[in-house]
Amino acid sequence: MAEDPPLAVDIDGTLSREDRSIDSRVMDVLRGWDAPVVIATGKALPYPVALCQFVGVEECVVAENGGVAYVDDELLYFGDRRAADQVAEAFEAEGYDLGWGDADLTNRWRETELAVRRDRPLDVLSEIAERHGLHVVDTGFAYHVKSEGMSKGDALPAVAERLGVDVADFAAVGDSPNDVELFEVAGESYAVANAEDIAKRTADEVVDGSYGDGFLDAVDRIRS
């Protein structure tokens, strides 16, 4: 049996069920992977780090849509939180909150970008972001305000270098527009059936299964 290639995989919509809970079947697959696993997500850094710990794999992550990565006890930053904070202040001055409540666990540990609930006005948010040199990406779960040139695909080569592997050796699995750049740099890429159209168009293959089922389908393809 051929060795597994390095794997870069999204969380929400890919390792999860439709309700965003982790599909428990994926955990043993990740734990048994015999090559580096990079959890690449739009979530703040503590979430993928915790997932790695609970699964039992090395803590190797790309978080905040490529804004920050952690590999081999090194933190790598690719985005500017100060500008994102200025966008939040201006958005709130226009009379809108970010939508996550007073505790705001979505942004509390976020270091390089801003996440806003999708029921907030995108036109207002985009105009403010542009004034501060940032742009908005709709991941399907939130509006993310981030620096230009900051993406999972921009961060993965830096992680691959530190792992001592070629980024083109990676297999990538995802579902969202924020996975497009990841698909573009990986050697092979798979979109799950519930993926957004742009992710499906960019991926090398679209599998039949959705959510965690789709990830397991992709694993079968990768290992075939």
Score class of each variant (00 low, 15 high):
residue 41 T to A: 04
residue 194 N to P: 09
residue 1 M to A: 06
residue 21 S to M: 12
residue 134 L to N: 01
residue 205 E to K: 14
residue 55 V to A: 05
residue 108 R to E: 12
residue 215 F to P: 07
residue 2 A to K: 13
residue 179 D to K: 10
residue 24 S to G: 08
residue 166 D to L: 01
residue 180 V to E: 10
residue 210 S to E: 15
residue 11 I to Y: 09
residue 97 D to T: 08
residue 118 R to W: 09
residue 137 V to T: 14
residue 177 P to H: 05
residue 148 E to R: 14
residue 89 E to V: 02
residue 161 E to Q: 14
residue 16 S to N: 08
residue 5 P to A: 12
residue 34 D to K: 15
residue 202 T to F: 12
residue 216 L to M: 12
residue 61 V to H: 11
residue 17 R to Q: 10
residue 92 E to T: 14
residue 149 G to A: 07
residue 186 A to S: 15
residue 112 T to Q: 01
residue 87 V to I: 09
residue 96 Y to E: 12
residue 74 E to Y: 03
residue 138 D to N: 15
residue 207 V to H: 03
residue 150 M to N: 11
residue 148 E to C: 00
residue 182 L to S: 02
residue 104 D to H: 04
residue 158 A to E: 14
residue 184 E to L: 07
residue 51 L to N: 06
residue 119 D to W: 12
residue 62 V to T: 09
residue 85 D to F: 03
residue 45 L to G: 09
residue 101 G to A: 08
residue 120 R to I: 03
residue 52 C to Y: 01
residue 56 G to T: 05
residue 83 A to H: 02
residue 54 F to P: 00
residue 54 F to K: 14
residue 187 G to W: 12
residue 54 F to C: 08
residue 114 L to W: 02
residue 91 F to E: 09
residue 132 H to M: 01
residue 155 A to E: 10
residue 207 V to W: 04
residue 146 K to G: 00
residue 59 E to K: 13
